[in-house]
């Protein structure tokens, strides 16, 4: 039985993460060979996943770490005297 586009889209995230079983993966791969649309949906989803993973997208505020560790020093000092 051949799976349709909608069925492929439902499994795209799991497919990208390698979490679909062998039989379903084979079905999806067969569908992708002939379906330009699903291939593009898969590629674009995968690319979105790769792009959002880039550490430059979300950065810590400037000085975040310094302020955090300065606060922590106060706590460690305080705890030492208690």
């Amino acid at each position: 039985m051949r799976i349709d586009c909608k069925h492929v889209w439902e499994h795209i995230s799991a497919y990208i993460d390698g979490e679909v079983d062998t039989a379903l993966r084979a079905e999806i791969d067969r569908h992708l060979e002939t379906c330009e649309i699903c291939s593009a949906v898969l590629d674009s989803t995968r690319n979105v996943v790769v792009l959002v993973a880039d550490k430059r997208v979300f950065e810590l505020p400037a000085g975040f770490s310094e302020r955090l560790h300065a606060r922590l020093d106060v706590e460690l000092e305080r705890a030492g005297h208690s």
């Binding site: 889209w9 795209i12 330009e36 649309i37 291939s39 593009a40 949906v41 590629d43 674009s44 989803t45 690319n47 790769v50 792009l51």
Partner: peptide, 13 residues
């Protein structure tokens, strides 16, 4: 949750 349909997108910018 229907995806945007593009014919091709194979390179990450």
């Amino acid at each position: 949750y229907t995806p945007a349909i593009l014919t091709s997108w194979r390179e990450v910018p």
